[in-house]
Design a protein around this nucleic acid. Structure first.
Lengths: 335, 335
DNA sequence: TTTAATTACGTAAACGTTTTCGCCTAGCTT
DNA sequence: AAGCTAGGCGAAAACGTTTACGTAATTAAA
């Protein structure tokens, strides 16, 4: 590393004070255009960039936000991050990434480690393992926070979500219209509002169409591919459903495999649809009907909200932004 | 935010100097165990965490690394990040993410913005748009840098890559063994060593098996789905290949669509294989033979290397770590 | 002409750590 | 008894900024 080029060095070479340099660099009204230009050109010439640590320390701004999510290697979240990062670039912010792996203790630990001024704000999609709103009730008082997709409700924080209930209702109706009378539910995110809303939409659609509101065949998600496969196979054997509503992408592979292993044809024997951001849904065998959330847009919206808050701009109106998902009909529901 | 709890506050409450507190917190040998314990318990009690900006400013260490990649929303890169983040957690490092979108100017801009002490080191998989090694030749002198997958060669930096040549050779042989005699190549990453190695492995396999070393039918990747589809269709029409070797995942969808639109059956009319980290490869119609890179492991290895460097540990031996990819044979190559 | 306001810049403190150096005390060694 | 050593701690400088405040020169208002 060459000898450090800092504000002091610029000041010396230009024979002005470091205060003037600092103000010039920040385009302060106190400084004449002439001086600013001298500073700017020398700064460019020497390749000066301000030391972020010093700047943060003094100004209490970091131009950095954290994204806390369950896992990066997931179509929904990687698209969300893409959106977040894109907006962050526009606003000149840096983006830190933390994965909780659905572990609430990790989630809390990460979050706490950010409260000492490491970041200006947090974007989070919370872990599904537990719903402990006490922690977040306190947290939102300490740091600007925006929830996306997986949210805590009744908090003084911005939330960006999708129309889970409505789209699940609509998707269930689609299955019914395609002739399903016994639709099993593959249940994910059961502790979270999103998961509950999806399930509620499914149940209400059944009820609306006069389908047994009694015991619904349900498989709850486990963090174990093999186990999910087993459970789906058991469900198929026991209840012989003619439709599968998968509420999370993680059920797709075990569901398809289960049907294949049990020699059930999709869609003639069983129709399937799933929440999913899989880009290859249309290439699956058979192509998969999906409920596709606007993951990229969710990331963008959440980031925009956070940056508005950080720049003290009034949020237009709502604390809750609800984006629309799309039901994309393909062969797996066969109509 | 409650009144700040900092080192000064701890010092006051314990009636000792801030120097002692700082040393105690850092477990310095200068401080007696008794004092350390007093400091530690109070720190825990008051929920003290050191201010990172102050610490960075003084110590010139940030416990932060940057990951610079083309795009997060890609199976390979999101898995890599997952691996990086996991190792970072173990070492107590924070992870910043930057997307270049294959734009070399953005890549340079991001990288330059990190040289002022924002991070301790960089992990990067470079843009494919250009191969300008001058910049990186200088860069590696300025900051600890580890390349993964998409690397610049002949630099004094650690590189984590895969056996692109060998696996491409092997995959091409597989196509030949399955009966292909005219194998077209869908060419990605042509400016990078990885892309060239894959192509070379393909060519050499053809040569080894006595297949025309002349003009090979090739489609070069464009950042435009529609265009790639067009080009593949033209290629299929013009050259009537019986095999497609796709060197990057991005060609899968257009390749499958092209065959479908032209009524070519996979694998009877055309056999296909592709480099890919797609988890649903086995569910495609037909299931796709893939060359799967150990993306997660690559991320882990790259991160481990960087942290070893940052902790001044001698790297075991090699500057080049080469991991093995897997050829996973499925229906799309039909044998 | 005097006073007030404005413009343009400088001084110095502050942000919260880490780290060098030096001091003091106890316990040893001669 | 004098001199050493080592252990335990504190004073103060430093890291590179930002910013409150002060000041001098110029301009506008009275």
């Amino acid at each position: 590393m060459a000898e450090a080029v800092n504000i002091k060095r610029l000041a010396q070479e230009l024979n002005i004070s470091i205060a003037t340099v600092s103000k010039a660099l920040n385009d302060s009204y106190e400084i004449s255009l002439k001086t600013k230009n001298r500073v700017w050109t020398l700064a460019k010439e020497l390749n000066y960039t301000p030391n972020p640590a010093a700047s943060n320390l003094r100004s209490h701004k970091t131009k950095t936000v954290a994204v806390i999510i369950p896992c990066v290697a997931n179509n929904f979240f990687s698209l969300s991050i893409k959106g977040i990062e894109e907006i962050a670039r526009q606003y000149g912010y840096h983006v830190l990434i933390y994965q909780t792996h659905e572990n609430i203790e990790a989630e809390v630990a990460f979050t706490n480690s950010l409260l000492n001024g490491r970041v200006d704000g947090i974007l989070t999609s919370v872990s599904s393992s537990e719903y402990n709103s006490e922690y977040y009730t306190n947290l939102v008082k300490k740091i600007p926070l925006v929830f996306f997709d997986r949210v805590y409700e009744n908090l003084d924080a911005v939330k960006v979500t999708t129309d889970d209930y409505e789209i699940a209702f609509q998707a269930t109706e689609h299955l019914i219209e395609c002739g399903c009378t016994k639709i099993a539910y593959l249940y994910g995110l059961e502790n979270l509002p999103a998961g509950k809303a999806r399930f509620a939409g499914y149940l209400d659609a059944l009820k609306t169409h006069g389908i047994a509101a009694g015991e619904q065949p349900v498989v709850k998600y486990q963090d174990d591919e093999e186990l999910n496969l087993q459970h789906i196979k058991e469900l198929l054997k026991k209840y012989k459903p003619d439709g599968l509503f998968s509420s999370i992408e993680e059920f797709i592979i075990p569901a398809y495999c289960a049907c294949r292993e049990m020699d059930l044809k999709i869609p003639s024997d069983v129709k399937i649809l799933s929440f999913s951001n899989l880009s290859t849904a249309k290439l699956l065998n058979p192509s998969l009907t999906t409920i596709t959330q606007p993951a990229f847009e969710i990331g963008r919206e959440a980031a925009k909200c956070l940056f508005k808050i950080l720049n003290n701009k009034q949020l237009d109106d709502e604390q809750n932004i609800i984006l629309k998902s799309m039901l994309i009909k393909r062969e797996s529901t066969g109509c």
